Simulated assay, not measured.
Amino acid sequence: MLTRKQHELICFIADHLGETGVSPSFEEMKDALDLRSKSGVHRLISALEERGFIRRLPNRARALEVLKMPERAEAAARKTKAPVRAAPPAPPVPANDVIEVPLHGRIAAGMPIEAMEDATMLPVPAALLGSGDHYALEVAGDSMVEAGILNGDYALIRRQEVARDGEIVVALIDDHEATLKYLRHEGAMVRLDPANSSHQPQHYRPDQVRIQGKLAGLLRRY
């Protein structure tokens, strides 16, 4: 059996999801239930989750799914003047949803530097990512500026081990250093091209190069 506040919260979440397709923020839930702090919202959500009424979607901010509604939700909703809606189906990922991807240190857009440092998590708008597994690398250098990739940008990389000529890839050189470049094949060699006329292409034997992903998007902070 749910408490009155738990009833109020699940009705508010279901109504917000039904209208917008997006979970309400903790601030919105706090105000709707007239709570003094967001810690009270956290406790209510944890209680609803433990009882199987809602679940949090992993690696996404503001992502709750209503699994079932309480039996007497209508009565609780009348007390709070909140409309009752049936639990909506899981909505598609909205454009303003956020997914956390691993941030694996820095990668050169000039000469290769060591990449894949200890990972932290970087929040990324879901609209920037497609299907597949992704990670992020901070760009260091200026050799890709003519492709719009600047020093300090975050390159969003889709994990894959193959790529076509002309695609921008993360290439791991001699299993040690990584670089972000256009992939080309030139005879029996692999050529990694910069996007800066003042930089020279890099040539390697095929056994020296492993593709670790393809550029899927960029995130820039101002």
Rank of each mutant, 00 (worst) to 15 (best):
S25Y: 08
F26H: 12
F26T: 12
E28D: 14
E28N: 13
M29A: 09
M29F: 13
K30L: 07
L33A: 07
D34C: 14
L35T: 08
L35A: 08
S37C: 04
S37V: 07
K38A: 10
K38M: 10
G40N: 04
G40L: 14
H42F: 14
L44A: 12
I45L: 05
I45K: 04
I45M: 00
A47W: 01
E50S: 01
E50D: 07
R51G: 06
G52T: 08
G52E: 08
F53Q: 10
I54N: 06
I54Q: 03
I54A: 01
R56V: 03
R56C: 09
L57G: 02
L57T: 11
L57N: 15
P58S: 09
R60M: 15
R60C: 11
A61P: 02
R62F: 07
V66F: 10
V66Q: 15
V66K: 09
V66P: 10
V66W: 05
L67D: 07
L67R: 10
L67W: 01
M69P: 15
M69W: 02
M69K: 07
P70M: 04
A73V: 04
E74G: 11
E74P: 12
A75Q: 11
A76S: 12
A76H: 04
A77Y: 14
A77E: 09
R78N: 14
R78H: 10
R78T: 02
T80R: 11
K81Y: 13
A82L: 15
P83E: 13
V84Y: 01
V84M: 02
R85K: 09
R85Q: 03
A87I: 02
P88N: 13
P88F: 14
P89F: 13
P92T: 11
V93D: 06
V93N: 07
P94F: 05
P94R: 11
A95V: 15
A95I: 13
N96A: 09
N96W: 14
D97N: 13
V98I: 11
V98R: 09
V98K: 02
E100V: 13
P102S: 10
L103I: 03
H104Y: 13
R106L: 08
R106F: 12
R106P: 14
I107F: 01
A108H: 01
A109C: 14
G110C: 06
M111T: 01
P112R: 05
E114H: 09
A115I: 01
M116W: 10
M116P: 01
D118Y: 03
T120P: 04
M121C: 04
P123S: 03
V124S: 00
V124N: 02
V124L: 06
V124D: 02
P125F: 01
A126T: 12
A127G: 05
A127W: 11
L128S: 00
G130L: 03
G130C: 00
S131A: 05
G132E: 15
D133Y: 12
D133N: 00
H134F: 08
H134G: 02
H134W: 04
Y135W: 09
Y135V: 00
A136P: 04
L137N: 02
G141T: 00
G141Q: 04
G141V: 08
D142V: 04
D142M: 02
D142G: 13
M144C: 01
V145C: 01
E146C: 00
E146Q: 11
G148W: 03
I149F: 00
I149A: 03
L150H: 06
L150S: 04
